[in-house]
Design a protein around this nucleic acid. Structure first.
Lengths: 205, 205
DNA sequence: ATCTTTGTTAACCATTTGGTTAAAAATGTC
DNA sequence: GACATTTTTAACCAAATGGTTAACAAAGAT
């Protein structure tokens, strides 16, 4: 069979549509007929290409998680000075999530539905979290007197919280603070610099 | 009709069961039969007492939001020094959410499904966000030279992010950092003090 | 005790949902 | 062009879902 593909294959159209609908509605709320409509195909094709809803969902979920989790592991493992790590994490992570601001909520919500199941899928070998090096790095900076005493665990939580949560709570912040879409994006761009500055101000001696 | 109630009325049992199921599964994933099973009643009673799924859901959602949103408005409006506000917000908010750690994710997820609809329900008069006073307070502290230059908006985002997000991402943090249930609770207790300390270290001159 | 009102039950209903099937259409191979 | 394989279609299916109904039971009012 020839491997030459013209424009979007049916499979690609399904995946693209499924991503849109699953990210918006979640597993429980998404309807196969809606995915088929979005892809412009007959619903039976979803089963021809992906067997069932669960299999299709898994592809989408793993792709989404594959965008979010390796990046966190990257700061764990990188050989860089601490402050640089913080700066590049914020910059890169916000850039990634800005391309699809609903990803974090989607992934976190599904993980909360069945943590063991979903996290085992995500961690199947490839994205195993390895925080030890990063946490040890923070301890070392404290011991060397370069930063104030702080628990590595809390520093990590603070970093990830400030970077990700505004996306999760987007409508709430928009309404609370009177931000339209453009303004929200602008604020998140600012945060690429604001968060590292805030953190470094908090821990620098 | 006598208003004397013995133990749990049927209505109370429904509400209690509905809260459990809706918070766990969300609107889309919750099943009326599951709620009835949880309450130990016949499913038809759900409609006798609450007409339909949407009406029942709304009661639960508003109750949940009513736990989370007024507290945020409280820091906006309180006549207290800034640092005290930050300290008491973290302390009280974490205490509230610890009683039901899944509330933030539940409320935020539903709001993201239809922001206009849900936020208008929440803001129907009573919980209208009034951040101006708080934001002005931060500006004043900056102008008086008591804290470093910082955008009030970012400070507010940082405060709420660090307080709430660990609950939203609970399974992820547990897995990443090897925390069992007790340890997670202990970490969140620590954060009552750690977050204000971190923030104050970041902004204090 | 009688009647009215409220609460409960089990059966039922129409629609929706994820999935199946067989036939037709399209594509690939020689 | 003939045959094989893959893709697509429309109809169909069983189960699940939110909701309805009528009968009965319990509680309230007089």
């Amino acid at each position: 069979m020839s491997k030459i593909r013209k424009d979007k294959t049916t499979e690609e159209r399904i995946l693209s549509a499924a991503k849109k609908i699953f990210v918006m509605k979640g597993m429980a709320g998404a309807r196969m007929q809606d995915i088929a409509d979005e892809a412009g195909i007959n619903k039976a094709l979803l089963h021809y290409y992906f067997k069932n809803k669960e299999k299709l969902f898994e592809v989408i979920f793993l792709e989404a998680a594959g965008k979010l989790f390796p990046k966190i592991n990257e700061i764990f493992l990188a050989d860089k000075p601490l402050f640089e790590k913080i700066e590049s994490f914020c910059d890169e992570y916000i850039t990634i999530v800005m391309e699809n601001p609903y990803l974090p909520l989607f992934v976190l919500n599904e993980i909360n539905q069945d943590p063991e199941y979903f996290l085992s899928k995500v961690w199947k070998g490839k994205n195993l979290p390895l925080p030890e090096k990063f946490l040890a790095q923070i301890e070392e900076e404290v011991a060397k007197g370069r930063i104030k005493r702080i628990s590595p665990l809390h520093l990590l939580m603070n970093l990830i919280s400030m970077t990700v949560f505004p996306f999760v709570a987007k409508p709430m912040f928009q309404k609370n603070l009177g931000l339209d879409e453009l303004q929200f994006r602008s604020v998140m761009e600012q945060r690429k610099k604001e968060i590292p500055r805030f953190i470094i101000d908090a821990i620098k001696k």
